[in-house]
Design a protein around this nucleic acid. Structure first.
Length: 184
DNA sequence: TACTCGATCGGA
DNA sequence: CCGATCGAGTAA
């Protein structure tokens, strides 16, 4: 049976592990028609001020302030003046880290998935919980390491070669079919 | 206050 | 390959 993942589960400092762990979990958005759920298939980790690709690379600012909150809140920001991108803040209070949700089953691309699920900046700072209308569920899908592909993060060349090359993007390969038999 | 530049996407 | 589109971030 579906289990709602508590916000507290995201307070570990192991951002990369938390990112991998989100693959196969379900992102659930409450709408007028009720809950809409989609399995997470692609994520990226952004880990602390040292990470030159991270929004917190130059310290705390108005935009990234929510990244310094304890893990388990949403960080939603406007990208390229056009797209709202969804991140789940991770780590303890004061440690700015987050996982960018780049794709779910049925919607590839961070900008597309937020549009599909009606997610925007009004959710910035909200808790990852049922009350907030956007939460994470564990529906029993088991994701073997062999089903996860790691690659460099997308669109972060500005971070310089060292950080741009970190294999912190994780993709479920293939998204759905390979996992069907293994769930429950 | 001015100016630069995106954690993207869709169309030419 | 390029334009859209706008606000955060930075420098002044």
């Amino acid at each position: 049976m579906p289990r709602i993942v508590k916000a507290k589960a995201f307070r570990s400092k192991k951002t990369v592990a938390l990112a991998r762990g989100l693959l196969g979990k379900f992102l659930v958005r409450f709408t007028r028609r009720g809950p809409v759920a989609a399995m997470i298939t692609e994520v990226e980790a952004y880990d602390g001020e040292r990470d030159r690709a991270c929004h917190a690379r130059n310290g705390r600012t108005a935009r990234n302030a929510v990244m310094y909150e304890p893990g388990g809140v949403w960080y939603v920001y406007l990208c390229y003046g056009v797209h709202e991108l969804l991140n789940l803040v991770t780590g303890p209070r004061g440690y700015p880290a987050a996982v960018l949700i780049r794709g779910v089953d049925g919607a590839t691309g961070p900008g597309r998935l937020t549009q599909t699920l009606a997610i925007d900046r009004r959710l910035n700072g909200a808790a990852c919980a049922e009350e907030g209308g956007l939460w994470i569920e564990d529906r029993g899908v088991r994701v073997p390491r062999s089903a996860i592909k790691a690659t460099p993060r997308i669109g972060v060349d500005y971070a310089g070669p060292v950080w741009a090359k970190k294999p912190w993007r994780f993709v479920l390969t293939p998204p759905r079919s390979a996992l069907r038999n293994q769930s429950l």
